[in-house]
Write a protein that binds this DNA or RNA. Structure first.
Lengths: 145, 145
DNA sequence: TCCGGTTCTGGACTTTGTCTAAAACGGCAT
DNA sequence: ATGCCGTTTTAGACAAAGTCCAGAACCGGA
């Protein structure tokens, strides 16, 4: 994946406000990453973020990208999605929703919230509370046989 | 996790029948793995399978374990579960059911089918069909604040 | 027994992600 | 400004899961 798309980059002040709002100190690197991420709903892996930043000439180290994505996820700015066994995706769509995962292409896409209601949740086992519900619908190419 | 439990091992003939039933040539190594897996419902990672076999003195190479688990999953003897970003689990419980995932302990457990009905599925995007639905309920330790 | 395709193997390799120790930074008080 | 100190960033080493490869072993059929 070397093709770079022209990602619209978020305004710096907006990004800064967003980080502060979530109690995150807006350092230079975090802002670069935030501006990239919050320019629209997307599903990005750490590697992809690193690639895009590199392509844009922004030098941010691998460790920082991993740390920052982890931080954003802990602070609920992002949602961590482990569906593809080979890498974690970060979902910038904050609202409650679920995912399609295309096993042939590895592509991840949103299911619009209305289409997939989850009515009845089971009780959490003793000593635990529910932290989140994640529904993944695995898709494959339509074909005969 | 170095503690080994005394896993009841499935009878060889049963295992062989099971493999044939699913169109899998029952080689020696596949039988070893099958006997281990189908001795009860469990969630095992490839590494863990390798460990258990090694502890039992059965020598099966890493590549074979990975290949075999992949094969079993493709043939629908097992269900691949990618929840823990660091490893894939193989679920020997074949029936339709979903999972709790304890984010504090990394533990994976079944949700009994009745407790978690999934009523309404969205339509698959054009050109694709639904291959499976996976619901994961993330749990964390109960605590104040 | 020979043959040909399938399976298994050790080991090298790749990829994702983590760790570490040192340097740089950022905010604050002086 | 200056100095201080805790936080953040960095490069690069490292770790773990999983894949790949080329040769050896195996398996069933003729």
């Amino acid at each position: 994946m070397t093709d770079k798309q022209t990602t619209p980059i978020l305004d710096e002040e907006q990004a800064e406000a967003r980080l502060r709002e979530y109690g995150i100190l807006p350092t230079h690197q975090r802002l670069q990453i935030a501006r990239l991420l919050f320019s629209g709903d997307q599903h990005l892996s750490a590697d992809r973020v690193l690639e895009i930043l590199a392509a844009a000439g922004q030098r941010v180290s691998k460790a920082t990208v991993y740390n920052t994505l982890g931080l954003f996820a802990r602070k609920n700015l992002l949602r961590e999605v482990s569906i593809d066994p080979s890498r974690v995706f970060y979902d910038t769509n904050n609202s409650a929703h679920h995912h399609f995962y295309n096993i042939d292409t590895g592509e991840l896409s949103d299911i619009s919230p209305g289409e997939m209601p989850v009515e009845q949740l089971p009780e959490a086992p003793a000593g635990t509370v529910i932290d989140g519900v994640e529904v993944v619908i695995r898709l494959r190419r339509e074909q005969r046989k």
